[in-house]
């Protein structure tokens, strides 16, 4: 094996990616070639320094890593909060909507308050809406305190 080929394969040998026969061939070459041996040692040294570097710097945050769950737990809760507040908003959204509806009812409700009290025997059913295109008919009881739709007939279906 020549040095050019050996240099191409040294890193694969370090990473254990060669067939046993190829790895043995590389090792034989490295043992007999000073410059390739230096290259191989340099690559291994780089890996060793990287491991030492991360290990030495990891120690700086050892207490924080020991208590990591507290931080992760807080992060989980923090993300839950917007969802919970969103559901709170949804839960109470009906309040302004209900208030708006109440205002509309008050605005459009007929002001005739002298009407007789409602009794089931005195239905005053009126055809409130008639749409010829869709044949939709709404029967509205106006004899009560509040007008209410009591029947809808649409294309002969109720």
């Amino acid at each position: 094996m020549d040095c050019k080929k050996a240099l191409q394969m040294i890193q694969n040998e370090i990473d254990g990616r060669l067939l046993p026969s190829e790895a043995a061939e590389i090792r034989r070459h490295v043992e007999s070639c000073g410059s390739c041996a230096t290259e191989a040692a340099a690559y291994r040294w780089v890996g060793e320094m990287l491991r030492l570097w991360t290990a030495s710097r990891a120690g700086e945050k050892a207490p924080e890593l020991d208590a990591l769950w507290t931080r992760v737990r807080a992060g989980i809760d923090e993300r839950k909060q917007p969802k919970e507040s969103a559901s709170w908003v949804r839960r109470w959204l009906w309040l302004p909507a209900g208030a708006a509806l109440a205002v509309l009812v008050l605005l459009f409700y007929p002001s005739d308050v002298s009407r007789a009290p409602f009794h089931p025997s005195s239905f005053e059913v009126a055809v409130e809406d008639l749409e010829s295109d869709t044949a939709t008919v709404a029967l509205v009881d106006k004899g009560n305190d509040l007008p209410r739709v009591i029947w809808i007939i649409e294309n002969d279906k109720t």
């Binding site: 991360t54 290990a55 990891a58 700086e60 945050k61 990591l68 931080r71 992760v72 992060g75």
Partner: peptide, 24 residues
């Protein structure tokens, strides 16, 4: 995870934040 995050960010505080956020 911390070792890898530290290597990529190069800063212990950033690495810790990254690990926390990745687990979340």
């Amino acid at each position: 995870a911390y070792h890898v995050a530290l290597g990529i960010t190069g800063d212990p505080d950033d690495a810790l934040d990254v690990v926390q956020e990745a687990f979340v």
